[in-house]
Design a protein around this nucleic acid. Structure first.
Lengths: 411, 411
DNA sequence: GGGATAATATGTTGCCGCAACAAACTAATT
DNA sequence: AATTAGTTTGTTGCGGCAACATATTATCCC
């Protein structure tokens, strides 16, 4: 085990500093006195902790409040200028990079199409190029860069920064951490896309203060970020969260999953399943506007296109999403029974069609889960939708900074 | 939130005391010096902590070791005489009670058949009666009783000690904690059967030192105890672990589950599914010895009887278990993909047939899970088999004592 | 073989720095 | 004057550190 199990005074200080910083992060604006009440810490202790955070420029005072008797409180908030963060998302067919301030506000972003099958080195260099642009932008602003977060589908060894295996990319054992650290001289954090998205939702999104929730990242496959007991659950080797491969063996499709098995849940609810559903409908029904859209845009049958058709009221598109929503909801129901979460959050590329999926997900959950449990669970769309993993890349850097800020010296 | 989030010196002391006590519990016999090396604590700190544990009679010295240069080490172990513990398991059709010492060694036990459908008050009184016998036994030994653990199927509010809902018992809102505390004057701990079994396995069984594992409690239904990141995961309301109700929609059975839905995984893998499989086979094949056994013993078709037939080499019995094993393994595969656990532990009443189920569970896991993940997971039978939940009732009391031992004063 | 000495490992003692806490204080407002 | 915010000063108790006492085995020399 790597984790320290013992406690000492330094641990106490770090724990309380981190607690106060996270409280200011999530509850700002807030005064020292309020922090003392909420945490139960002594007033003097809070003052001392806040002093240290002020000195490290992680927090700043933003003036007194007004109204009410007594001395006015000096309000605090996390200093968005504490540093910039760079996040990079390696998708199955694109690369996205963003620069944000410490509060996750996007200052710069860029997205390029990419093809992982052509050449791994080329795609990595493409990513590196955009990241360097991002760093150049950051330098212009005279802000220090706290770190680079990088997300990818597949299983990741976060300690070594190595992608172990990504079935959708067909990549194995890629030492992202080493490559990007050497080239950028930044602290590099590598994480699975769904895990990172869960952290983003916890820090900046709809799951602030939520201890137990699941992020369902739906794109080419379906991955899960399991946020349990107030932190990410990674399992023995960091592979946890492969929720898409629960064997459900439903008729009629029985599609072979890219993992090699048949009957995985995700084959009934991923992007490709929707495209299949639409294709099957188009063979029978001719009234759909989808073929026309495809011809106009010189495009294949893609999720954005189907979404566009649905927006235009196309019944085949809407019904295909609805069907997939029911299949997706069946898995949601099972997960809710297993985890008794406070929230289920749907995000990732497919979530651009979230408004068409969500009602039927909720319907299927009602039908297939234990009411005592599912009544406790809110099912919502990610605040960041298809950008969930990109913001996640930012979030893993910020999250680490909120925990271990020893490297934050006086500016 | 109830949990304390801040840290102070008292917290440090409690953390380290508990850590040292648990280390001595799981690694005994062990010396102070070894504890210091394993924990990273300073030698002097360990001495101080051990002194306190000795004073509280939680630990005792058991003489020096021999061999090797240097001053011989004084070995320590947890004091089995620190107190007795009473555990009671409310099964669907039986009540089991046991008295153990602090190390979980059984000193006394008793089991009675029961029927929860006839009269709830009667079954509670029946349990209370046996518990009082157990207390009387404990008194005879001049040992203090540390507490009473009580396990039941269904969802439990552990803070209030209330059974919220047990579908198999058809019970709702039973305040076990209050009833048993009033009648016994003991500290009472109420917990779900699968959760308790997981704690038992962690403290006394095959999951010592294991941080991430699942206990699959199979009986009338299938429940799960989720032990994640080194502790029990209960979910938002303590309902987590209803792994039996993942909707899998497989043909041909589609039995209606007692939860009201169709296609729940457990309907393909629980006790009743096995009985159904045997019945279907008996209608066709006449060579089985099962009808003869039923006649001889004047018994219905039960799992112990089918197990008996299997032991005698009966093909229909063996094949029925094998089929159920495959169905069970399908769910195991999905859970392994989701959790990336170090162990999957099968226990509960049905596990008396574990030797017939396990090979096919393992086979199905190989077939239906991602190899990177399932290669990491050991699939084993509970050390306590059908008694897993009874030992679990003991374990939840011991586990609490190992954490918060403020109530242990000098004897 | 036997006695002295060295080497080694265990566990204890006394002191220190540092954490949160408590209480008394000042500060700024209605 | 009452109220609330935040600071100052001193106290308590934690684990770490380094020197020390203790108890054994290993080795050398006679």
């Amino acid at each position: 085990m790597n984790t320290k199990l013992t406690a000492d005074q330094a641990f106490v200080r770090e724990t309380n500093l981190s607690l106060v910083l996270r409280l200011i992060h999530s509850q700002a604006p807030i005064s020292r006195a309020q922090v003392a009440v909420l945490t139960g810490l002594n007033k003097s202790t809070v003052s001392s902790l806040v002093d240290e955070l002020l000195e490290k420029n992680l927090v700043h005072e933003i003036g007194s409040n007004v109204g009410g008797a007594g001395r006015p409180a000096m309000m605090l908030e996390v200093n968005a200028q504490a540093g910039n963060v760079i996040g990079a998302e390696l998708g199955v067919d694109f690369v996205s990079v963003a620069v944000t301030d410490f509060m996750g506000n996007i200052l710069w972003r860029k997205r390029e199409e990419a093809d992982p099958n052509v050449n791994q080195v080329k795609m990595i260099n493409q990513t590196l190029q955009i990241v360097k642009e991002a760093i150049a932008f950051g330098k212009k602003k005279h802000q220090r860069v706290l770190g680079l977060g990088l997300t990818t589908p597949g299983t990741v060894n976060i300690n070594e920064g190595v992608l172990i295996f990504a079935p959708n990319l067909h990549w194995r054992n890629v030492p992202f951490g080493k490559i990007f650290a050497e080239q950028t001289k930044l602290p590099v954090y590598v994480e699975n896309d769904a895990n990172a998205a869960a952290v983003a939702e916890h820090l900046f999104g709809t799951a602030r203060q939520v201890q137990d929730f699941l992020f369902v990242f739906s794109g080419v496959g379906i991955g899960g970020g399991l946020f349990l007991n107030g932190k990410l659950y990674r399992g023995k080797n960091g592979y946890a969260g492969e929720i898409g491969h629960f064997p459900i063996m439903a008729e009629p499709y029985q599609t072979v999953c890219h993992c090699g098995n048949r009957g995985c849940w995700e084959t009934y609810a991923n992007q490709y399943s929707i495209i299949q559903r639409v294709q099957a409908r188009l063979e029978v029904k001719r009234s759909s506007i989808i073929p026309k859209l495809m011809a106009e845009q010189n495009s294949g049958l893609t999720i954005p296109l189907i979404k566009q058709a649905a927006d235009a009221g196309d019944k085949e598109a809407i019904d295909s999403f609805a069907e997939a929503g029911l299949a997706m909801g069946q898995g949601f129901a099972g997960l809710i029974n297993i985890f008794n979460p406070k929230k289920m959050i749907l995000g990732g590329p497919l979530s651009i069609a979230g408004e068409y999926l969500l009602p039927n997900i909720i319907e299927a959950v009602k039908r297939h889960s234990m009411p005592e449990i599912s009544q406790q669970a809110e099912i919502v769309l990610s605040k960041f939708g298809p950008d969930a993993s990109l913001i996640g890349a930012i979030a893993i850097v910020v999250d680490d900074a909120l925990t271990r800020f020893t490297h934050f010296d006086k500016k």
